[in-house]
Design a protein around this nucleic acid. Structure first.
Lengths: 191, 191
DNA sequence: TCAAGGATTGAATGGTGGTTCAATCCTTGC
DNA sequence: GCAAGGATTGAACCACCATTCAATCCTTGA
């Protein structure tokens, strides 16, 4: 029974994620999520007090997955330049694989309470990047700089550069290399 | 009479801007705008077919004002490095003067139709920046790069770097210089 | 001064979609 | 087997707010 309850909760989150990946947040009425999860509308409220709470958790889950993937890719590299290239490649590559979801997570108009979760998401990326930047600075690979400001600005640059392609549905094949070049310059990677 | 009509229209836009600067888009019910403008709710609809149309125009007006101020400041400088420093200083300085309005224009959740206007806003900044970057590249002051990608990424970086301080209500005094340093690196300005 | 026609009013309307809840269905422990 | 208690249902509810519109008020041209 406990297990069944927990399974329902997971099914709701999965259903919400599925609809977000398909139709974005706009398609995510509580009724639609419940139907996709194979439950009645009201049952959703046995698991989440409000819609905003549900989607805060959905965003948290999806964001964590993204951040983890990026962190894992970066951890395979050794220099800061390579680590940050991996960040860009993974972030952008995944976004282009699931553009509707990426757009929802990055930029789609959502409930303010959910929007707050987006800040956490961006903050998590910024911290990940800041760590690699700080190491690069410490080792002398990168010039002195405020790793946190650099990281924040890079997150903004990445997101902004992806929103266009995501909205258009396609990115030119050179978007990602160009972004990596930009970011290496911004970090002060010596050529 | 024509004049009175036009004056009403302007009063509505000004009222909407005032409320946005005070309480953000969230505070902008049609009733509140009408009251602030000294009109009845229904009268707003003599001037704008829908709320979205009204706020599209409000965003357009406010954005144009911002972009113009930034363009004017940049035009006073001669090198690309100085021009882009002026862009950052003006953009960030104005945002910090009117943080609630800046947040509304940059990042607050709004009606999708209004959101579209925001893209135009960001695009206008990107084009302004791209122009200066292209000149810098042409003159050899900056290394070869795709001016449009650089500009888009810089707009994102600027916006992201400002959202934190705007939400917090204050920015450290060194935020702007640090941002200028970041952007100079990202452009490849030689030290 | 006075009608005609447009401007103004603001309470009523309506659509949307999140939220509730009484009825029903299961599961569980005796 | 069988009640008790919690889970589930989904139609009804309700709040919010953009939008409308019949009644009223002005302005204007004669």
């Amino acid at each position: 029974m406990k297990a069944r309850l927990n399974a329902s909760r997971q099914r709701i989150i999965a259903a919400a994620l599925g609809i977000m990946a398909e139709d974005g947040y706009a398609g995510c009425s509580v009724a639609a999520v419940a139907e996709q999860a194979g439950l009645a509308t009201g049952s959703v409220y046995r698991h989440f007090p409000t819609k905003a709470d549900l989607f805060a958790e959905v965003f948290r889950t999806a964001s964590q997955r993204e951040v983890d993937a990026v962190a894992r890719a970066a951890a395979l590299e050794t220099t800061a330049a390579e680590q940050l290239a991996a960040v860009v490649e993974t972030f952008a590559g995944r976004a282009l694989q699931a553009p509707r979801l990426a757009y929802a997570l990055l930029a789609e108009p959502v409930d303010p309470a959910v929007d707050a979760e987006r800040l956490v998401f961006r903050r998590a990326y910024a911290e990940l990047i800041a760590g690699h930047v700080a190491e690069g600075v410490a080792s002398g690979e990168l010039p002195p700089q405020d790793p946190d400001l650099t990281a924040t600005a890079l997150v903004g640059a990445l997101a902004e550069a992806m929103v266009g392609p995501l909205a258009a549905g396609v990115a030119g094949p050179d978007t990602i290399p160009a972004l990596i070049a930009f970011i290496h310059r911004a970090l002060g990677v010596s050529p």
